[in-house]
């Protein structure tokens, strides 16, 4: 719960978080080391200095860390934990649904754990979707189109194999598809951040919600264009948000574009924990105003009402969470520091 200076309580649903193990023990090879090193560089590059973590903690943090950083010190009411396997790089997966679900089981009222699959696995991917639905009753998945898999250096949402998987997701009621379109791993044979495949998939699967993490940055223009054509395309603010600290004016330009093209109902807050922690992000976001000249040009501004939608109400709608009921439920199990 975030409390505004006026005392208003704002429901915060953190749309993009992880519970990963990037420690040397879990690294399968140099790629595993370089992957977590790259995340760490994002962390050190864009965090305020007082929020910096030591490398060993960043590589592998505890269940207690998650709870404290998100809900005790942090303002989150709920968090969506995304799964990312990177099986070529990590022995037990980078952040597996099993490990995340076991962590989340301590506070099930606060977590939504999403699955993940790789359509290039063919039949196995379909079986895996069934397994995740039956075992964990997932409501959403996270897709990593740039992931390498054997000889393949990336895939597209509109590949025929992917369509088979999305058909199954639709049938099973797994309706939220988070798609990583942003930095880090990149495919070889194409523009790494190409977002055009979103257009096809969103048109062909109208009953699924397509949440494009990192807003397709650095292909924001193309993403905005696609998102305005499709009613079921959303933008996740992870990675864009930390610019609020390092380059606030530039953050204003990004927000102005997103509000102008997508509108206030289509944007989702995400801290990208543990790359960044939600406390400072939410505090700075609540204090933030788009610089007047940029706001005027696009005719948009981040009002309190819009911020409240972005911080939680929009994601709650996608995940069928009744915010008022949830508030009551959470009031009944207030955050507490686990005995450490």
């Amino acid at each position: 719960m975030f409390k505004t200076p006026e005392g208003k309580e704002i429901f915060v649903l953190d749309g993009h978080t992880h519970f990963w193990d990037g420690s040397p023990e879990n690294q399968a090879n140099i790629h595993g080391k370089q992957f977590i090193d790259c995340f760490y560089a994002y962390h050190t590059n864009l965090s305020p200095s007082e929020e910096l973590w030591e490398k060993s903690k960043f590589e592998k943090y505890s269940e207690d860390d998650v709870y404290r950083d998100l809900f005790v010190d942090g303002p989150d009411d709920m968090a969506i934990i995304q799964s990312t396997y990177l099986n070529d790089f990590y022995k037990k997966g980078f952040s597996s649904i099993e490990r995340s679900s076991s962590m989340a089981a301590r506070h099930p009222e606060r977590f939504i754990v999403n699955g993940s699959f790789d359509p290039r696995d063919g039949e196995k991917a379909l079986e895996y979707i069934h397994y995740m639905k039956e075992t964990f009753d997932i409501k959403g998945v996270k897709m990593y189109t740039a992931e390498w898999n054997g000889d393949s250096k990336g895939w597209a949402l509109n590949d025929p194999a992917a369509y088979k998987c999305f058909e199954l997701c639709e049938k099973l009621g797994i309706k939220n598809v988070h798609v990583h379109k942003g930095p880090t791993i990149t495919p070889l044979s194409m523009d790494a951040f190409d977002v055009r495949d979103v257009d096809y998939a969103a048109t062909d699967f109208q009953n699924l919600n397509w949440i494009i993490e990192h807003c397709g940055l650095p292909r924001l223009d193309e993403f905005c264009w696609i998102a305005t054509q499709e009613t079921n395309v959303y933008g996740g603010l992870a990675v864009a948000l930390p610019f609020i600290h390092s380059r606030p004016r530039y953050f204003g330009e990004i927000m102005a574009e997103l509000l102008f093209w997508l509108g206030e109902d289509k944007l989702l807050f995400g801290s990208d924990y543990a790359i960044w922690t939600p406390k400072w992000l939410v505090e700075k976001f609540w204090d933030y105003q788009i610089p007047e000249d940029i706001a005027q040009e696009r005719g948009v501004q981040l009002t309190d009402e819009i911020k409240e939608k972005i911080l939680g109400l929009n994601a709650a709608r996608l995940y069928d969470i009744d915010v008022n009921k949830k508030k009551v439920e959470l009031a009944g199990s207030p955050v507490q520091i686990a005995a450490e």
Partner: peptide, 25 residues
């Protein structure tokens, strides 16, 4: 809008190049 994208990359790349081999104490 083209520039906003390229600036994102530029800012990110400059920052990452600066912190790539650094750690926190």
């Amino acid at each position: 809008s083209t520039r906003i994208n390229m600036e994102f990359n530029g800012a990110m790349c400059r920052g990452l190049a600066k912190t790539r081999y650094k750690e926190v104490e």
